[in-house]
């Protein structure tokens, strides 16, 4: 009797099980997709709760709601003006870094003399705290956007050079020899063999550098600017408007994440073969 009951229960549960599993999988898939958003929402919720429970004043730690309120209290035009100014400087410095860093990396990877001569100089530039020399750069280059673009360039270009050189050097020696044996010119070897090998390295550097470009622009705007999110943060803190400064920080982080994604998209669009299979 007992065994009959068990088998009956089993037979009635049998068609339900695949459906349950399917539903469970669907929920898990959604959870997997939403995990980053849910985690961010949880952090914001806890942050808001802490501010409210402990009645933290805005000058110590503004609550997310206070930050949002202060952000919306400002005319959207003001946000656009500052964001555009920072974006212009970031992209200007970033573009300059790419234009200079990649050919320089090609030179360094293919000439021992150049590598021995220029590499130490590049390390010296990278080791120099840019925040310290930024005021001097501003005095030397005068007013306008150029000093800010140059400061951004200095902060951005080193990872691109190093990573590109590593990528170029990773080209298998046999391939280079094969190209030479087939009579290919050095330029062709670089263009058709070395550079394609370096593409994953170049893009990983480009992704790091785009976030550095935003930091570079902000550093430059702290030193000398009349517009830009860095200027706006300095301006807000000078009036002790901490929620407003936090709102600008959030805009900066959002900008940085967006640009990071844009670089990832560009790689997926132009060089899908350079990505691991699961990322294509």
């Amino acid at each position: 009797m007992n065994s009959q009951t068990t088998s009956a229960a089993r037979s009635s549960a049998a068609p339900l099980q695949p459906e349950l599993t399917k539903r469970k999988l669907l929920v898990l898939a959604w959870l997997d997709r939403l995990a980053p958003v849910l985690a961010a929402l949880a952090v914001i919720g806890v942050w808001e709760l802490i501010c409210r429970v402990f009645a933290l004043p805005n000058y110590l730690l503004p609550s997310p709601s206070a930050i949002v309120t202060s952000a919306f209290a400002l005319d959207p035009g003001i946000w656009l003006t500052h964001t555009w100014a920072t974006l212009r400087v970031s992209l200007g410095g970033y573009a300059l870094a790419i234009i200079i860093a990649i050919p320089l990396a090609v030179l360094l990877a293919n000439s021992r003399l150049m590598s021995r001569t220029l590499y130490p100089m590049l390390v010296v530039i990278q080791s120099t705290p840019i925040v310290g020399v930024a005021p001097i750069i501003v005095v030397l280059m005068g007013a306008g956007e150029m000093p800010r673009i140059f400061i951004t360039f200095l902060i951005t270009f080193f990872p691109i050079v190093v990573s590109t050189v590593t990528g170029l050097m990773s080209t298998p020696e046999e391939l280079k020899e094969l190209s030479r044996s087939l009579g290919a010119s050095k330029a062709r070897e670089i263009r058709n063999i070395q550079l394609p090998f370096a593409v994953p390295y170049i893009f990983s550097a480009l992704r790091i550098s785009i976030t550095l470009a935003i930091i570079g622009a902000v550093v430059a705007e702290f030193v000398a600017a009349e517009k830009g999110l860095g200027f706006f943060i300095a301006f807000s803190t000078s009036f002790l408007r901490i929620p407003q400064a936090f709102a600008a920080l959030i805009v900066l982080v959002t900008l940085s994440l967006l640009l990071f994604q844009v670089i990832a998209l560009v790689q997926r669009w132009l060089f899908p073969w350079s990505l691991p299979k699961e990322s294509r």
Binding site: P57, Y59, T237, S238, L240, I242, A245
Partner: peptide, 11 residues
């Protein structure tokens, strides 16, 4: 930093 003076005094 000049921006920290007010909060430090208030706290």
């Amino acid at each position: 930093d000049p921006g920290a003076l007010g909060p430090m005094l208030a706290a």
